[in-house]
Each structure stands twice: as C-alpha cells, then as structure tokens.
Design a protein around this nucleic acid. Structure first.
Lengths: 167, 167
DNA sequence: ATAAACTTTCAATAATTACTGAAAGTTTAA
DNA sequence: TTAAACTTTCAGTAATTATTGAAAGTTTAT
C-alpha cells in the first residue's frame, strides 16, 4: 500500500466511522484529511481532495469549528482562509466526549430523571417503569461521568496507568 | 406526569437516542417498550403500542435478537410468540458494548493498523500519515479495551469502586 | 392432509438526511 | 468607492435509510 492508497483508505474509513462519534460522513472526512495533512488547507484544497461541493465544505467546516475541532488559520499574504484540525488525539477525544455528552447524553439523563421521578401510584406497571428508568438513569449518569473523567486525564495517565489498571 | 405520559416520553426519548448506541429508532423503541413491560409482549402488542407495521416489528425484533438483547418466550398454551428483553442494565450495557466493538470498532482498528504500517518512504507527508494514524490506532485500541473491561466488571465494582476511583 | 394462526420476506414507497450550485453576502486591495 | 476574491446561505435535488403491506412461508391442531 503506497501513500495515496493509505491516505484514501484512512479518509474513507474514518468517514464511514462518523456515525460512531455522531457526525456525518463529509464532516468526518474533512477532519481526517486535515488530521494527516502537513499544513493547513484551503476550502479549494478540501473540495478538490474530497470531491465535494463548496457549500458542503463550508457547512461542514463550520460545524467542525462549532465542535472546536477545527480552527481557521490566517496565513500572512494569503487572501484565502486556511483550516487545520487539532492534531493531538487525546485532546481530540476530550473535545468529542465533552460535546457528545453535552449535546446528546445530558438531555437524555434529564428525561430519565424526570420519568423515574413520577409519583408511585402503587400499580405494578408504574413500579416497573420507575425501577427500570431509575436503573438506566444511574447507569447513564455513571458512564457519562466516567467517560468525561477518563478523557480529561493527561496523556501518560490515560495510555499507561489506566490500561494497566484494567488489565 | 402520569404513567402513560412518562411511558411515552421514555419510549420516544430512548428511540431517538438509538443513534447514540448505533441502532435505529424502531429497534430502540421496541427495546424500550419491553424494558418497562411487566410481562413478555406479542408482536400484536408491540405493533399496537408503537403504531408500527407487522413487517417492521418482525425485522427489528429479529435484529434485537441478533444483538442478544431480546429473547423469544414460549408461553404454554399460547400459539403466538412473545418477546422480552434483558432487564438488567449492566448486562444490557455489556452486550451493547461488546456488539458495537465487534461490528464497528474492531474493523476500524484493523484499518488503522494497516494504514499506519505502510512503508516509510521518507517523505514528510508519509511520516505525518504514519504518525497520526498510529496515534489514532493506539487511542482507539485503548478505548476499546477499556470499555470492554469496564462493562465486564460486576455491578458493585462498576457503580461503586470505579466511580470513586475517578472522583 | 388441510386449514387456521401465525411469522417472515421483500418490492414499493415514504421519510429523512446529505449535497449541490448559484445567488447573496463579506472582506480586502487599490 | 469599486470590484475582485473569497465565503455563506439555502432552495432544490439526490442519496440513503426506514417503513409498509401483501404475498409467501411456517407451524400447529385436528
């Protein structure tokens, strides 16, 4: 496998993985492209490499910036805007975890809390609803806290100590 | 909020959360319905409650069974088939983590390993590709191992000790 | 063996989500 | 102030994904 093949394979795989971390294909591919680029890229560069339209590129870049994963770079003497992504995987994981927690997990935790707090009318079905949603609430909450704690540790602690801990 | 409202809110929220754990809306809603039901439900029951077609119900029940989350119950004297879901949230989390790892994470790890193992031709861009995909490979692998270890611990360890550990 | 009771399959269709491209908007240089 | 160079927006369209419903398949009771 040569450079070009490896690059394409990485971008397409990372793109289809988008769903796993909650973003769409183009967004994931742009991030992947920037992630392995040796320099910031312009919108033209991105459109060209990924064969996507200007509008699509613009919208997805904006979303990546909203997530805090991509930043606009001003290059002296250049009229165009250039973009680059966070290059440190640990920091990337931290941002993604934080955003997903905020956007998706926290709202669900809120609903679970509400639902599990309804008044117990003594019926079997109400008891079951309360019991099960309470258990789900506790689990989701624990997981959420844990994931955020984990990704907020520093690099050494995460890759070395933690892995050892769970061996 | 009364029982019916709480039930509907739970099912619809859990359904729209489907994407977070990688399954579709109907599938998540069927699981949610079974999760708070006090007894196994027939296909008719599910169709009726969720207002979905027979075909849809059949296909999604089959998928839930493939995941190992839902089981067919044979009730003596009944001609219909009845379905119930795993009621223990810890076990549920364990199964979901295992399946997602197998279906989605493992294949990506494989690609990352391949891509990060291409021959270094000495060029700057190849070096960057190798460096970045290697970092991603390590992170993904660590996360995958960790998540599986965590969900495979017993209940007490997970909810008590682990949470304390990361406080 | 037959038929009733039930489940599965799958082609057609609907719903959702992503993408394009051109017009409108913005910034910069002269 | 103008116009060239660039970015954003968004209505229309394409692609993808989910759902229906009816026909085919299966099981069970007689």
């Amino acid at each position: 496998m040569n450079y070009q093949e490896a690059k394409e394979k990485f971008i397409s795989t990372w793109g289809s993985l988008g769903s796993l971390w909650g973003i769409n294909k183009a967004m994931a591919q742009i991030q992947a492209l920037l992630f392995i680029s040796t320099k910031p890229l312009s919108m033209e560069d991105i459109m060209e490499e990924l064969k996507i339209s200007r509008g699509n590129t613009s919208m997805n870049l904006r979303q990546l910036m909203d997530w805090g994963i991509v930043t606009k770079e001003i290059i002296p003497g250049e009229r165009k805007e250039f973009f680059s992504t966070e290059k440190d995987v640990q920091e990337l994981a931290r941002v993604v975890a934080k955003e997903r927690s905020r956007r998706e997990i926290k709202p669900v935790i809120k609903v679970l809390k509400e639902v599990s707090s309804i008044k117990d009318d003594g019926s079997k079905q109400t008891k079951e609803l309360i019991k099960q949603t309470k258990a789900l609430h506790e689990l989701t909450d624990t997981m959420d806290v844990m994931i955020n704690k984990v990704v907020n540790q520093n690099q050494n602690w995460l890759t070395k100590s933690l892995l050892k801990l769970f061996k």
